Computed example of a mutant assay.
Amino acid sequence: MSQPNAQPLQIKVAVLREAGAPLQIENATLGAPAPNEVRVRVVATGVCHTDMVVRDQLFPTPLPIILGHEGSGVIEAVGSAVTTVAPGDHVVMTYMSCGLCLPCETGHPAHCSHMHPLNFGGGRIDGSTSSCSCGDEHPIHDHFFGQSSFSTYAMANERNVVKVSKEAPLELLGPLGCGIQTGAGSVLNALNVEAGSSFVAFGAGAVGLAAVMAARVAGATTIIAVDVTPSRLELALKLGATHVINSREEDPVQRVHAITGGGANYSLECSGRAEVLRQAIDSITILGTCGIVGATKMGTEVSFNINDVMIPGKRIMGIVQGDVVANAFIPKLVDLYLQGRFPFDKLCHFYQFDEINQAMADSESGITIKPILRMPATQA
């Protein structure tokens, strides 16, 4: 049965029309949900490094496109086949997966065989979109990470919305769908950092600091943050780091080995820089594991000493979204936050929707660790 509020409606969106250009706030029309889709009134959305990587087309997507992939909001309409969520539910939107390929079926949807077309293809898997410009009705590419949340309303799939407690502050929760989930999930799920171990995060942005907080939750006893910004290193100490290293002032590999007495059990490369990945690999100990989450330009390569990896049995692991099943993992992060054990709010600063380009600039300059855009109270 169709719902009265499931009809097309007028929305405001931030559109990328040219590589590297500022995003433009425009009016658009959003269609009705497909049978397996939900329409979400976006309350707020995080700004992620990946949004800027795509803005600059280091990860190519079709243009024009509505970016944004850390949205939180309230479901207002659902398609006829949706069974797990309903209008009125508070949700966090996360990455999209197909649910049918081998990685999805074996509990690794973040490594879905269709990850690129579903998250970077600019539409649904069949190429269709939900959004079009007002006036000329030209289609605008959307479904970025299955949501395109730089918008007052977003069209998502039942698979990539996560119902969350109404006790939690909804406007704060969007970053749990990507950046915070990636850092925390890498530690608690992919790397499976255990109590008493040593861990080092290379890069103390949102992902790296989420990893630091998660390492504390996991019970790691030596937690090291590496960065070049003193204020971020100071915050890392407040969030659970036992040591910090300014890599502009000292060799991080030598310092990690000195702190740990031979290398860390786990390292996580969060900066997206090839030379830093080499440091993350060199900083781990015998049978240590280095995880890679930093987004780099397509085709980026890195060199390392093969014998220094092979002989000590080091492991190098690529990680997407913390390799988590978001429906199970995000509610756990919400619970940890409500208990005061995962204070990711200390990374966040709010901006109004029309300040989106300033939010991106502040993120790139290091002024803000995790920008969150508040959507206007009037939703059209």
Rank of each mutant, 00 (worst) to 15 (best):
T106H: 10
V164L: 03
D354M: 08
Q321Y: 03
H49S: 15
Q57W: 13
D142K: 02
S363R: 05
C178G: 04
V244C: 14
V293Q: 01
E364I: 10
N189S: 12
T84A: 13
N265P: 01
M52A: 09
I319D: 04
L373I: 10
P33S: 05
K332S: 15
L347Y: 06
T285H: 05
E37M: 11
D308C: 08
V91A: 08
T61E: 13
G322W: 07
P33G: 07
H111I: 13
P8W: 03
S267W: 06
K166C: 11
D142M: 07
T300Q: 06
P22I: 10
S148M: 04
V82P: 12
A86P: 10
F120P: 04
A184I: 00
A258R: 01
V42R: 00
T368K: 13
V162K: 08
I11N: 03
P230N: 14
V200M: 00
E301C: 12
I223Q: 11
A154D: 12
T285R: 01
P33F: 07
Q57F: 10
T285L: 01
I140E: 02
G174A: 02
Y351K: 08
I281R: 03
F353S: 12
V200H: 07
V92E: 03
E269T: 02
L176M: 15
Y95H: 11
